[in-house]
Design a protein around this nucleic acid. Structure first.
Lengths: 214, 214
DNA sequence: AAGTGGTCTAGACCACGCG
DNA sequence: GCGTGGTCTAGACCACTTT
């Protein structure tokens, strides 16, 4: 949809999709939270330009980015490991009873590496998926299309830290530069399945964006 | 409510408050997003411990903190100024036509300064409120109780930065330490009134927390 | 089987923007 | 006055958990 145009009214959308206000409004609220529209009381729902930011803080994950030119490099393909400690959101007891799958990747925008992602999930809740088998290179898309698992929510804890030597190397920064560290847990529609991440972000060019509406 | 207990069922709450499922669920969804409860399909809504984090990323602002012992020091009382430039979320044209009110404060937890807040709002949308007249020292509480203005949403942009000399001094850190910079815009129930902030956070002891659910 | 949360239909009334 | 979004009541059906 073109920026600055208005969507059909909620009542019209009800007709078009044979749904009720409740359902239509729920869908529009998603668009609002993702930053695609703003609602103007008495006028309508206007399509807006999404800002120059990563949009990491929503359930869409990195794929919800404003940027089309996000490139993903797998730096450590999926492998089975033991859990490490020190998560801000610790895995459940059940998850810790089994091993986990770990993979690491680096996200870049226009050639600039912006995020180093360390990702884990429990082998008890989801089979081993090789990074080479990700549909279109996307983990979330693979979960959705092949396993019918949806991301239902996300919890995060955010800190500013100096970059370690290793992270600095991967982000092509000087060691000690200020980076953003995100400890993250995604909750999925599969009750026992959570996805854990420790993400290191270079926010110099591309800050993290977030919006939240009642 | 005690941690790990369950709330009355949604149907029960409907009875207790003479409301419908829709309304009760909307309220519970707020509690979910604020991190006070988790919903367990088929079981109920369980009260959980909120983590050791600031909860800055929701519409509650700093007052949504987990910590009771948040102390606020006004370092620059309200005064009328010209707008400065460089906001991630620029004031609207209408707002920029008039002057603005600026105030600065430092939030501390258990004696440790954790946030330096620079705050602005347009004089065209809200009268000058002296920091000394804040109800219980809270700006949001004053807006709500005295002006019947509610916070409806928040947009943020987050970066990791080295602390400037001035910010370092206020946060009692060494200059150049990694801190978190948040550029923030609160939208209110008063259509023309937005609140703008540039916040500098020391996340070493108290990281920023956020949760998001469909 | 009974109780829970998840989702939906159907319809009402209100507050806001605009002509 | 009319159309818009904001909120609410009333009630149905489904999926999941527990007994």
């Amino acid at each position: 949809m073109a920026v600055d145009t208005y969507l059909p009214s909620e009542h019209e959308l009800c007709g078009q999709f044979s749904a009720t206000r409740t359902t239509v409004r729920k869908a529009l609220d998603e668009l609002l939270r993702e930053g695609y529209i703003v609602k103007e009381h008495g006028r309508g729902s206007r399509v807006v330009e999404r800002g120059r930011s990563l949009g990491l803080l929503t359930v869409k994950g990195f794929s919800g980015s404003t940027h089309q030119a996000v490139d993903t490099q797998v730096t450590q393909p999926s492998e089975v490991r033991e859990w490490v400690r020190g998560f801000a959101f610790p895995p459940t007891d059940q998850e810790q009873k089994s091993t986990c799958v770990f993979f690491q990747r680096v996200r870049s925008i226009l050639g600039t590496p912006v995020v180093v992602e360390n990702n884990w999930y429990s082998t008890s809740a989801l089979e081993f998926i090789h990074t080479a088998d990700f549909i279109d290179g996307s983990f979330f898309k693979t979960l959705r299309q092949k396993y019918h698992v949806e991301i239902m929510g996300v919890e995060q804890q955010i800190r500013a830290e100096p970059a370690s030597a290793e992270v600095a190397r991967m982000l092509k920064l000087a060691p000690g530069q200020a980076i953003l560290f995100i400890s993250i847990r995604f909750k999925t529609s599969k009750p026992d399945l959570n996805l854990y991440g420790s993400w290191y972000c270079n926010t110099k060019e591309y800050p993290i964006g977030s919006s939240y509406f009642r």
